[in-house]
Design a protein around this nucleic acid. Structure first.
Lengths: 346, 346
DNA sequence: GCTGCTGATCAAAGAGATTTGGGATTTTGT
DNA sequence: ACAAAATCCCAAATCTCTTTGATCAGCAGC
């Protein structure tokens, strides 16, 4: 592999001059020699060595992103798309993504090792929740990072998040517009931050429509199919006139749970019961009937995260305000909510 | 950040000695000073700088893996799991994975840039097909790589692949054991290498069972839901006594296409028609009924790939035989094939 | 003719590690 | 007791690049 030295010899100049040309330093080299150097570069097929460059500038131009292991029975609905776009925008900004495996019980040592050794310049973290240890850890050590997801209200750090409440709010508004008046919510447990946001949008939507909210309409479970079935069982145990005609769920997976057990009980999705999911997982469109759900704008989020990271890395050291961006998700209407109630012949 | 110099000063030795201790060079330093150096390392909290180390040894200890963009309507069923395990095993071997975005039309420049600049030491490629340009390109430049997936029969290079034929063969054998005698195959077009392997296993299975194979039972389409519907339509157009009672599909997505349109026509999956998918996509278990499918051992494949890559990197330069490993996938029996035909009261 | 300035170029100093090729001790062999 | 060998350690070179500080030629001003 040719080095800068070879280029210098070939062009008959010093290596300093070559470096100036390569880095487009203005007013440092005459137009004539600039041309000569470029010609030499082309002639011997030179590409600068990234490692040497990084050593000199004490950076790595690598951004670490932890790849969360998902239990085999779970889907990580949007993380693969997110990673793709993250890589895409990072490359536009002259960085690359280093993906690493993060241990669920004890994530900190990997972050420590990667930053201490100079492997990465910054991190993108996701899958945050209340009390996320990584945030305090990274802040304490002044390691640049941006989070996809919020954490404790008192903590101040750079984050970008999907406005979950807006998503469920849109779902409720849509159901109301179809004529539904008894709308349930199948959510996650109290320990989930994202689950809390999504629940809040639901509550807000009912209130805005002037609809009552029965406590039995709110089911709290986990990220699995079973929670969906359990939610449905709870709803069906209610007296006829309190029984919900539609369910907003906290995720597509829970929506599937509701849907599958409803079908097994002979209910028809879209007429007997309307269902709205959350995530727009790739498979949601292939369900029968296709699932109406909330699409997370992961592409946009990846773009914003890289933008904020660039700012952080450029202004490192200098005081800077923390950035918080909430991006609205979008309701994707498919047929799991059927037609407006008023147009049905019941 | 402390450097090796600081450790040397703290321990009262030269930096060479510290380096020997850090790299466990045998017979180069006494047990006593070894202890002293380690104590100094702990005391000042030193971690070697990866960039400097890499510059000196002219490597990056980074493995490039291209993140393929998947069309929004498609699922990349196993690639996210694969990436996770790849990262996991790479880390065990002292490497990291650099994920980058690869342009579908013109992938080569990125590979060129990443290897010329010394960004990565090697590549893992996937999504190969006949005539894959990356393979010749990397071989010509002697860039280490291992492929997840085969290519042209005449080409010799290191690859690991799922034995697709074994998968569909298992599917056919299973259906035969349930009593099916008219089994169809919904596949991909002739241009697909993996599709050809999967078709071969089907043909083989029928022959082994001594069953006839009607050409109309083979449908060739693409990786989408529509191809599944089209396949079903073709099967249903056959006279009653030629109509298949079971379909082996080339992917879960095609299986869903068959399933959804069969259901819309009032057929019951598992009794009127049995279906077997391929991939064991995360969602296949949540279908109603859950889909019997073929699970790809991605974890094992990732492990083998890293093992081969290590061998390549250690033996670089020395002559070495190419490694080809075919890993058998596993039939995951769920309920989309119902009960044995003989036990049904038809 | 000398000083001061500008513009183009370069030598050399790192950046933080590894490794070569010896030195300085100590141990072994005779 | 002395040479040879083994052991332990180090100075310096090296990996490839960026950047500082200096040199040098050319030119204007007085």
């Amino acid at each position: 592999m040719p080095t800068i030295k070879d280029v210098a010899r070939e062009a008959g100049v010093s290596i300093a001059t070559v470096s100036y040309v390569l880095n487009n330093k203005p007013d440092a080299v005459s137009e004539e020699t600039r041309q000569e150097v470029w010609k030499a570069v082309k002639r011997i097929g030179y590409t600068p060595n990234v490692t040497a460059r990084n050593l000199r500038s004490s950076q790595s131009r690598l951004i670490g992103y932890a790849w969360h292991q998902v239990p085999a029975d779970q889907v990580n609905p949007v993380l693969d798309q997110f990673t793709y776009f993250l890589a895409h925008y990072a490359e536009e900004a002259g960085y690359h993504i280093l993906t690493f495996a993060q241990s669920p019980e004890n994530p900190l040592p990997v972050y420590d090792e990667l930053s201490r050794s100079g492997r990465v310049d910054a991190f993108v973290i996701s899958g945050t929740n209340w009390g996320d240890k990584r945030i305090g850890f990274l802040q304490e050590r002044a390691i640049p990072f941006v989070s996809f997801g919020r954490a404790d209200p008192g903590w101040d750090f750079d984050w970008v998040d999907v406005d979950g409440a807006s998503g469920t709010r849109q779902a409720v508004d849509y159901l109301v517009s179809l004529g539904h008046r008894r709308i349930a919510f199948a959510g996650w447990d109290e320990g989930s931050l994202a689950g809390t946001h999504r629940l809040a949008g639901y509550t807000e939507g009912l209130a805005a429509a002037g609809l009552p909210l029965l406590p039995q309409w709110i089911f709290r479970g986990y990220q699995n199919e079973l929670s969906g079935s359990a939610a449905l069982k709870q709803y069906l145990s209610l007296p006829e006139d309190e029984r919900p005609t539609a369910v907003v769920t906290v995720s597509d997976l829970v929506a599937i749970g509701v849907k599958n057990s409803a079908e097994q009980l002979g209910l028809e999705i879209g007429s007997d019961l309307s269902i709205i999911g959350f995530d727009d997982s790739p498979f949601s469109q292939y369900l029968n009937p296709p699932l109406t759900t909330i699409n997370q704008p992961v592409k946009q989020i990846a773009q914003i995260i890289i933008r904020i990271l660039e700012e952080q890395l450029i202004k490192s050291g200098q005081p800077r305000d923390f950035v918080h961006e909430l991006v609205a998700p979008k309701l994707i209407i498919r047929s799991s909510c059927g037609t407006p109630l008023t147009q049905r012949n019941i």
